[in-house]
Nucleic acid binder design. Structure first.
Lengths: 165, 165
DNA sequence: CAGTATCCTCGCAGATACTG
DNA sequence: CAGTATCTGCGAGGATACTG
């Protein structure tokens, strides 16, 4: 069998994972959010070889997360800009970042590099809330495979495929 | 060269990506957060083969994200429970989930499965804030490679390695 | 049920040379 | 500088058989 693609899974997380659920994509997005635009800058910062970087950038462009823009009109040099879709990954990256700070370093040993643009104040943890704005703690929520959305598993996906075949 | 590990990178995001930055880990955690505990349940829901699942579960256990617990004392059957470290990945998963809902489905076509435990109300978007609690929007923040933390790149990591060698 | 133990394949990544 | 084009190979991931 070939490696399974999650792109057409009925689960939002699976689909997201299919697009950005790998190490290089996450690091590229980290740098893109930090303002990196150019191929060579990504290359030196990431230390990936050219072909890898090319491939990963193209994936992200195909996914509509990055856009290629000529540096100036009529020039073949391009820059990679985050689309709105790409920008809105900031919550996910930030959550991972904060988790990494908390759990993969000794206390206080982690670099601090995400801050408010105006005052430079450090970011606090992401806050959960309901659609109506009521704040929630972690223990207040649950992930429910509902009747309306049973299709979050491979199991149900397999059933779907079988139907069509 | 062998495939680069990000485990010892000085960047929190890189380290987080090293532990949970792959598709299977994300899906396992999704199910774990939904209450799945048993090997066979993971297996049928994910549709991964036994060896893959075993390996991935072991990685997560080694990383301290999951714990193996005997179902009952003196029995060899085990369950996989989320540790506190694992639980606190909920923000990252949720962010990815919400991003997937918004960007990988046609409008309104996505399953709704994360909700408040008490009222069943759907979750709203994660909120950014400073450590002092001041709310922020996406455009209010920036990722800054500071002098105190220049070491978030492969570049600087390579320099570090070179020093030691 | 909860995994080990094997075997196999091909995708991903690494290195490097070359082009506009 | 910004890639494309090739070559190479490790190892993740897949299938299946077998064990306590």
């Amino acid at each position: 069998m070939t490696r399974t693609s999650l792109a057409r899974y009925p689960c939002p997380l699976a689909r997201a994972a299919d697009l950005v659920g790998d190490k290089w994509a996450l690091l590229i997005l980290r740098d893109a959010l930090a303002g990196v635009r150019r191929f060579s800058d990504f290359k030196t910062r990431l230390g990936a070889s050219t072909n890898i970087l090319t491939e990963r950038l193209n994936h992200l462009v195909e996914a509509g997360i990055l856009h290629r823009k000529p540096v100036r009109p009529g020039v073949q040099r391009v820059e990679y800009h985050l689309s709105e879709k790409g920008m809105s990954l900031v919550h996910a990256l930030l959550a991972l970042w904060q988790w990494g700070e908390r759990w993969t370093f000794e206390e206080g040993k982690s670099p601090v590099t995400v801050q408010a643009r105006d005052t430079g104040e450090k970011l606090g943890p992401l806050q959960l809330q309901t659609v109506s704005g009521r704040p929630l703690s972690i223990t207040d929520i649950e992930m429910v495979p509902t009747e309306a959305a049973p299709a979050i598993t491979h199991q149900s996906y397999a059933a779907l495929k079988a139907q069509k075949a």
